[in-house]
């Protein structure tokens, strides 16, 4: 009998150690009170919106613990990519060559996983960023991200009172959020800038939710 089939293996033996450590870290994961929980807001800049063919050019992330963001523990990385799309340069401003210090995709994954640990990820329209990172992982034969994640777009809709929900837009861009929540739009369209904006939007939204007394884990993660 193949025990492997019954106890599905978490990872293959030939997976790199950093991946094994990352996966293992989820074993003993327990929820702490929200105030003590570390959230990681992140954002990606990509060559385009095609999950299969486009690539991640940069990853930016900030950590939030107890409503505080530490500037000396932010994550900002630029990735060497062969795929290049001149069309999107005007949005993110990252050139194929350029003088930014860049790392390989695998190195970026390793650093990113070490940064996010097993904590909760926060992103705006998280699905896309999540998927882009997963594609990166798959290209290197690794599994998908295991972190829970919160989408500030969805969360924002939830924070609106039920009577306003009918008028809600289907799709809130990060710019919409900045306007509604009164957040300064500095460094839009850099991964780290958008990550910081997302983090502040997240803090503002959970404050609203807190006020209407529904800030529970179940609610947040649903």
């Amino acid at each position: 009998m193949n025990w492997n089939w019954f106890f599905r293996k978490k990872y293959n033996d030939d997976h790199p150690d950093f991946w094994k450590a990352y996966v293992d870290s989820f074993d003993k994961k327990q929820r702490k009170p929200i105030q003590e929980t570390r959230f990681v807001a992140f954002d990606t800049e990509t060559t385009g919106f095609d999950k299969k063919n486009d690539r991640v050019l940069s990853l930016g992330a900030v950590e939030i613990t107890n409503k505080t963001i530490k500037v000396n523990n932010t994550f900002e990385i630029y990735i060497k990519q062969d795929v290049f799309n001149p069309e999107t340069v005007k949005i993110h401003g990252i050139l194929k060559e350029g003088d930014l210090e860049k790392v390989s995709e695998l190195e970026a994954i390793k650093l990113f996983l070490a940064y996010i640990k097993n904590d909760i990820l926060v992103a705006h329209h998280a699905g896309f960023d999540y998927a882009m990172v997963n594609e990166m992982l798959l290209r290197h034969g690794l599994g998908k991200l295991k972190n829970d994640f919160i989408d500030t777009g969805v969360l924002f809709s939830k924070s609106k009172h039920i009577i306003y929900r009918e008028n809600l837009k289907k799709h809130y861009t990060l710019d919409d959020l900045c306007k509604e929540l009164n957040i300064a739009m500095t460094d839009r369209h850099t991964s780290i800038g958008d990550a910081l904006i997302t983090a502040i939007a997240f803090l503002k939204i959970i404050t609203r939710l807190d006020k209407i007394k529904i800030l529970k884990w179940d609610y947040l993660m649903k």
Partner: peptide, 10 residues
């Protein structure tokens, strides 16, 4: 490593 946020803060 580059720290854009620190640059914005300063």
């Amino acid at each position: 490593m580059k720290n854009s946020i620190a640059e914005r803060v300063s």
